[in-house]
Structure formats: structure tokens, C-alpha cells
């Protein structure tokens, strides 16, 4: 199909908008992720987060405008939405990026067959609540492994609510007569949403349902699977799952070692989890020596204290958009 010159102008205009938007997003992500600028984020991470943010906003806009064709993908006012400046939303997507990275490493490094993992075994549980939660965990895990695109239904409810109404306001501004229709569509969209399927929620529910029955397996990432392993750590340490995923995905092994120490894992189990989730190929001899020399020497109380500092720091950051004093480096 031939594009007319005015169409090309429109495309170029939209592209330049996006380029500027993305550039600012990169700066924001860098500032949020690495408040002391010690570890610059990779191009890959920035590209993935930017793509996910855009895809979510476009999926929302399509729903609200009632368009479905890829040809009329609405992009003209997305850069003006300001959603990329919302720390909670960016934080959520950074965690999703981390989750996919870690899930890929787990798949590559684990020799436990999927059918033997705890979620797969719980599919056959007599309680349908447990079986359904297991199924949701496996679906999310599969989605992560396939690196499927996230759409609006993947967002936490508060984020979706806020973003939806921003899109409505923008649609209304772009097409003033469309306000009533957009509001009606967003209300329909919100009633279709179900938090039960959102990342982290099925694992949290499973943990609630199974209690302490599988504690040993939950400390083993290969058997528990990433979602249940992280949910178990989160419950033990009073951290949220997204925070733990970000800590595991950091370039240094230190944060992951500290959270495992704080959760009371033994050294051999902690090292096994490091190999699986941090990645065997990323572990240097120096890392291993550091771990072997430091893990047992680290006092659990001290590790718990450090984790509390991180929690305070993150709470402060998310509440005020400012990093705290004790972000782990």
C-alpha cells in the first residue's frame, strides 16, 4: 500500500513524539531504578518497559475508543498522558521485566520437569480453589516464558483505574463529543476486570490456601516455581513480591543472598536458588567465593534489619517518588 505524503507526516510526527517520550522515560527509569546511578539500566530493559507501557496504553485506548484494527492504532496523544511518570506504574513494569528475566533463567537452569513442580502437582488437588490458583500460576508463568505482551488486564486495580480515567480524559480532549461514550466504555471495562488473575495474586492466594503444608518445597525455587517461591519469601519478610523480584534481578548477588538469609534459608539451598534464579552463567568465581565466605558469617538478625531498611526505603520512594537513604547497592 502506498502512503500519501500527509500520512507520512502524521507518522513522523507520532514517531517523534514517541522518541521524545521514550527518551524521557529512559531518564525516569534510570533515576528510579538506580537512584545513586551506580548501575545504569540496560538498553534491553528500557526498550522492554517502554514497549510494555505503550502496549498497555494502546490496549486501553482501543477498548475505550472501540477500535480494534491495528491500522488505526491510536497513538497521537499517548505521549501527553503522563503515565510514564507514575512511579508505581513504572515500578510494576520493572518488576514484570525482572520476573521474565528470572523466569527465563529458571527455565534454562532447572532440571526439574514442569509436571513435577508444586503448582503442576496442585492442579490435581481436590479443592477447586487450589486447583484454579495452580492453573493461574502456570498460565502466568507460561506467559512470562513466552514474553507475551501485557495489556490493561495485567495491571493492578488501582493503576488500571487511574490510567483508564486518564485515557478517557485524553480521548475526550481529542474528540470532545466522545466523552459519554468513553466513560461508558471504561465503566464496562472496569467491571470486566478481575484482580484474581493479576501477576502475584494467584500465588498469594495459593500460599494462603496451603499454609505451612509445603514450607520446605516453597524454599526451593526449582520445585516451587518462581511465583510461589517469591510469594513465600514475601510473606516471610513482609516485603511485596515485586520488590523481591527486583532485588533478585539486580546485577549483584548481595541482595538475593541477604533476603534468603533473612528468610532463614540454609546456605546450600540459598546457593542452589542463586544458581537457578540469578543464573549459573552469571555467577563468577568471585561471587561464589563471596557467597561461601559471607553467607554463613552474615547474622540473620542483621539480614532482617537490612531487609527492613530496604522496605522503608521503597515505601518512602513509592510514596514520594524519592529514593530513600538505604537503597541496596
Amino acid at each position: 500500500m502506498q502512503n500519501r505524503p500527509e500520512q507520512l507526516d502524521g507518522l513522523l510526527d507520532a514517531a517523534s513524539f514517541h522518541a521524545r517520550d521514550n527518551e524521557r522515560l529512559c531518564a525516569d527509569v534510570a533515576a528510579m531504578l538506580f537512584p545513586r546511578a551506580e548501575n545504569p539500566p540496560s538498553e534491553k530493559m528500557l526498550a522492554e518497559i517502554t514497549a510494555q507501557l505503550t502496549h498497555i496504553a494502546v490496549s486501553l485506548e482501543r477498548e475505550i475508543r472501540g477500535t480494534s484494527s491495528a491500522d488505526d492504532a491510536p497513538t497521537s496523544f499517548l505521549p501527553g498522558l503522563g503515565f510514564q511518570h507514575d512511579p508505581a506504574l513504572v515500578d510494576f513494569l520493572i518488576a514484570r521485566h525482572a520476573e521474565r528475566q528470572i523466569e527465563a533463567r529458571l527455565m534454562a537452569n532447572s532440571d526439574v520437569m514442569l509436571a513435577d513442580t508444586l503448582p503442576a502437582r496442585l492442579l490435581a488437588d481436590g479443592h477447586h480453589e487450589i486447583a484454579e490458583a495452580a492453573q493461574a500460576i502456570l498460565v502466568n508463568s507460561s506467559m512470562n516464558r513466552r514474553r507475551g505482551k501485557l495489556d490493561w488486564s495485567a495491571l493492578p486495580p488501582e493503576q488500571l483505574h487511574m490510567l483508564s480515567w486518564r485515557v478517557v480524559a485524553s480521548v475526550q480532549r481529542a474528540v470532545p463529543d466522545s466523552g459519554d461514550s468513553a466513560r461508558s466504555k471504561v465503566q464496562t471495562l472496569l467491571t470486566r476486570y478481575d484482580e484474581a488473575a493479576v501477576a502475584g495474586n494467584p500465588a498469594r492466594k495459593m500460599l494462603h490456601l496451603i499454609g505451612t503444608s509445603f514450607d520446605d518445597e516453597l524454599c526451593d525455587a526449582a520445585n516451587a516455581g518462581l511465583a510461589l517461591f517469591v510469594a513465600h519469601l514475601a510473606a516471610s519478610l513482609k516485603l511485596d513480591e515485586d520488590h523481591i523480584l527486583q532485588l533478585i534481578d539486580r546485577p549483584s548477588i548481595a541482595a538475593f543472598a541477604v533476603i534468603q538469609k533473612a528468610a532463614g534459608l540454609k546456605a546450600d539451598q540459598a546457593m542452589q536458588n542463586l544458581r537457578l534464579l540469578f543464573g549459573f552463567d552469571r555467577l563468577t568465581p568471585r561471587d561464589i567465593a563471596l557467597f561461601e565466605g559471607g553467607f554463613d558469617a552474615l547474622k540473620r538478625d542483621d539480614a532482617v534489619g537490612e531487609v527492613k531498611n530496604w522496605r522503608t526505603s521503597r515505601d518512602e520512594y513509592l510514596a514520594t517518588s524519592r529514593p530513600g537513604q538505604t537503597w541496596p547497592s
Partner: peptide, 9 residues
């Protein structure tokens, strides 16, 4: 407030 389905402990 959100007019959405929630699922929480």
C-alpha cells in the same frame, strides 16, 4: 470506589 472485582487476603 474502583468499581472493579478484587481478590485479596
Amino acid at each position: 470506589r474502583l468499581k472493579m472485582a478484587l481478590s485479596r487476603p
